[in-house]
C-alpha cells in the first residue's frame, strides 16, 4: 500500500485515493492549434523516476492533490494541493465566510 500524506487529512492509504494522471501536462487555450492539443491530450513523457501526478482523495476530503513520486520505487517526495488558490482560501476558513 502506498501511504499518501494528504495535505488536508493527513497520511492515508492510497486505496482512499483515485489516480488522475500526469500533473505536468498543461492544457492549451481552447483556440490553440491542433498540434498543441495533440501534445497535451495524447503525448506523455512517461518518466522512469520522479514525476508529478494528480490524485483525488475520493474517499476523504475529495480534494485533488499533486504528488511528486518515483515511478521506480514508489517513494513519495512531496504532496501539495492541486489548486493553490483553494488551499489558501481553506487556510483562512477559520474565519467563516460571511453570507451576503
Amino acid at each position: 500500500m502506498l501511504r499518501i500524506p494528504c495535505p488536508f487529512c493527513g497520511t492515508r492509504d492510497h486505496s482512499e485515493f483515485s489516480y488522475g494522471g500526469d500533473a505536468s501536462v498543461e492544457y492549451p487555450a481552447l483556440e490553440a492549434p491542433a498540434e498543441a492539443w495533440l501534445e497535451a491530450v495524447f503525448q506523455r513523457d512517461n518518466i522512469d523516476g520522479v514525476q508529478l501526478e494528480t490524485w483525488q482523495h475520493l474517499h476523504g476530503c475529495r480534494m485533488w492533490i499533486v504528488v511528486e513520486r518515483d515511478t521506480r520505487t514508489h517513494e513519495i517526495h512531496s504532496v501539495r494541493p492541486a489548486h493553490q488558490g483553494l488551499a489558501s482560501a481553506l487556510a483562512q476558513s477559520a474565519d467563516p465566510v460571511s453570507e451576503s
Partner: peptide, 13 residues
C-alpha cells in the same frame, strides 16, 4: 494497479 509504475511488483488493493 491504477498508478503509473516501472516497478515489477504489485500492490495489495
Amino acid at each position: 494497479d491504477w498508478y503509473k509504475s516501472y516497478a515489477q511488483r504489485g500492490n495489495l488493493p
